[in-house]
Simulated assay, not measured.
Amino acid sequence: MDIQVGGILGFLILVADIWAILNIVQSGSSTGSKLIWILLVLFLPVIGLILWFLLGPKSARA
């Protein structure tokens, strides 16, 4: 049972990281800051995702 739960959790983290990376690439930030955020999300998947969500560039959504 532990492997199944870990597999599902890992898959959800992977999907969230891919979503974050796509949003980072599409953001209007500079190339340098995009690269730093992408590396942070890739090397620290959970922490990087949380930090990007809280501190990353915000898009102008209405």
Rank of each mutant, 00 (worst) to 15 (best):
F53N: 02
F11D: 01
L55F: 11
L51S: 02
I36P: 01
W52T: 01
T31I: 04
S30G: 15
I47F: 08
I13T: 13
A16Q: 07
L12T: 06
G28R: 07
L22A: 13
L42T: 07
V41M: 10
W52C: 03
M1K: 09
I18C: 09
S59F: 11
G48Q: 08
I21N: 05
K58T: 06
F43T: 10
I38Y: 03
L14N: 06
A62G: 13
W52H: 11
K34P: 06
V46H: 06
N23V: 03
V5R: 15
V41S: 05
A60E: 15
Q4T: 11
F43L: 15
G56I: 04
I3G: 02
F43N: 05
F11N: 08
I18N: 10
S29H: 00
L51Y: 02
L14I: 03
K34R: 13
S30D: 14
L49F: 14
F43G: 07
P45E: 01
L54H: 00
D2M: 13
T31G: 00
V25W: 08
P45F: 01
V46K: 06
Q26T: 05
Q26E: 12
L54R: 04
G7S: 15
F53G: 07
L22F: 14
I50G: 03
A62H: 10
I38K: 05
I38G: 04
W19Q: 11
G28C: 00
L40V: 08
W52K: 03
L40S: 12
L40K: 05
D2W: 10
L40W: 07
Q26L: 12
V41E: 06
T31Q: 06
I13F: 11
L55P: 00
D17S: 15
L39I: 02
L49I: 05
G10V: 02
L51V: 08
V46L: 15
R61L: 11
A60D: 15
R61K: 12
S30Y: 01
W52S: 02
L42C: 15
L55E: 05
V15G: 03
P57D: 07
L35M: 13
L14M: 08
I21T: 07
I3V: 11
I50L: 14
S29K: 01
L49P: 00
I3W: 12
